[in-house]
Design a protein around this nucleic acid. Structure first.
Lengths: 307, 307
DNA sequence: TTGTAGGCGTTATCAA
DNA sequence: TTGATAACGCCTACAA
């Protein structure tokens, strides 16, 4: 009986188009099946992909995503988090704004901080340090020794991790000798234009002193840097190898195709959602989960030319 | 008494951090203060900006946004719309997927279709036709006569509007004479790579026959076309003027800075939200609201060189 | 003006 | 297992 009845009820439910009311449901069960995500800027392709992946992951768990943009503005961010709290979302995925300082996040509401880790909160990020190291090691293996680095903004946590990855690789001893020469670093914002001027800066020296390869901390920087090299008449990859970081779609559309280190955005988003929904145990507070990056070969790297 | 009491209660409310429960609220009032937005692809900067602007506009009305991506897949799109319906959102902003055909949208739930207009639904879009005309007229005024056009995909509604704008401008009579020569059209997808090959196609002819200017139906196409010109050794804007369409942030970051026709995304998003919340009257079903585009000068246009 | 009761649509809980 | 009932938190309407 149960079986047949069950089927008949199910049939009639769809027939009548009945759908349970989420408000009533959530009022009784204390679960909203809603997840908030607060990011600095949706027009940044990295965050856009993060949101998109989170939406997919959430949908797989029967949840929906409320997006909010903080515009990297701490006050707006605080306001949005308050809104989400009052909405009684089941959890929040937060990429903190850069001028984030002393924001007190509501206790009792699960929060996962992504990408820009913060002490005291469960965090998920790509392993920027090892990721960059992968890319720089690729250049070292090709034979490059004068490898320039375009860094991110000084106070950005991921930027510093990337810088450390570069320094790790540059300092690694190879049979007792240092693998590479002294670091050549240019600090810049993560965007295209900053990458271009950083590239100009690194390349504006005599051929025997200028880097034969440059690692950029973002794909946008790398693309800007390609532009700079091009304008200086430096052929890529013949006279200059370039590697980027992030693995945004644009990277595969440049000419030549940019070699880059890809962050596993989709996996990170899925993990964040799973943690918030208790499908996966949250990382300990100051032990973020780090996701391995992957080096993607492209057409922008080659062995160095002799001076 | 009322006044003082009111103030004191207000004070205590904030002091205790009391916030009304939206579920209970919505259960009684039948209003969820939630708006759904379904777009084909969040990594497309145009849609990302649309979502971001919608979020801002919604926040100004005390509403929040649930985002969903259809990946241009009709089935997924239908599923997402069903989800939003069962969520009892107050309205849906929809950019239909391209393989959209016979989807029946739920009656009784306010829907505004944006950008890719559909007969039978309230629509909002940029006035692509006049926008393109603006850009092409700019080229005509500079003295160009052989103006190429990179079109969008054949079955895309906005692509066809843009094409008509180009034809409008090319056919306009100027003191009795046709202002321009026969149209030179290359069909392409809206992305970078397609723009590049379309550019190659248009520019692969003798100098006296090749266009002195090209209007591209998207900024990404325009950037790809710049690339093609560059690879062919054609200097921009000296030997070739280029104008794009959309006005995405990337357009102002190219070298030289791309001239483009900007869609008023923010205004369109605000209008869509306002209509859904009944702050603005919806357009009649087959009379979409068209928003004027704006021509943004750049460094990619100049008068044509003599042959 | 102030207070109270009822109901929105679920689901948890308790009784049978 | 099944069925009945109460309670979730807010809002509105009506009574005092």
């Amino acid at each position: 009986m149960t079986k047949e009845l069950r089927a008949r009820v199910g049939g009639i439910i769809t027939e009548l188009g009945y759908m349970p009311d989420p408000s009533a449901r959530s009022m009784r069960s204390k679960v909203s099946r809603l997840i908030g995500i607060v990011i600095p800027d949706l027009t940044n392709p990295f965050f856009a992909e993060l949101v998109q992946s989170a939406e997919q992951a959430a949908a797989n768990h029967g949840c929906n995503i409320i997006v909010m943009t903080s515009f990297d503005h701490a006050a707006k961010e605080a306001d949005r988090i308050r809104q989400l709290t009052s909405r009684k979302v089941d959890g929040i995925i937060l990429v903190p704004s850069n001028d984030f300082h002393t924001l007190k996040l509501p206790k009792g509401l699960p929060i996962v901080v992504v990408d820009r880790l913060m002490p005291g909160y469960s965090g998920i990020a790509a392993d920027h340090r090892r990721g960059v190291r992968l890319g720089v090691e690729h250049l070292l293996k090709l034979g490059h020794r004068r490898i320039g680095f375009i860094s991110g903004p000084k106070h950005s946590v991921p930027a510093n991790d990337r810088l450390r990855g570069y320094l790790d690789a540059m300092e690694q001893t190879d049979g007792g000798t240092r693998a590479a020469e002294a670091p050549l670093i240019a600090e810049a914002a993560f965007d295209y234009e900053s990458g271009r001027s950083a590239g100009n800066y690194l390349l504006a020296r005599a051929r025997s002193e200028r880097p034969t390869a440059i690692f950029a901390s973002s794909d946008q920087q790398a693309i800007g840097c390609m532009r700079a090299a091009h304008d200086l008449g430096i052929p890529i990859p013949a006279a200059l190898s370039i590697v980027g970081f992030d693995g945004i779609p644009l990277a595969s559309m440049t000419t030549p195709r940019l070699a880059t280190v890809k962050q596993p955005i989709e996996e990170m988003a899925a993990a964040a959602v799973a943690i918030l929904l208790n499908k996966q145990t949250a990382p300990e507070l100051d032990k973020p989960i780090l996701f391995a990056c992957e080096f993607l070969t492209g057409e922008t790297t080659a062995p160095p030319q002799p001076d």
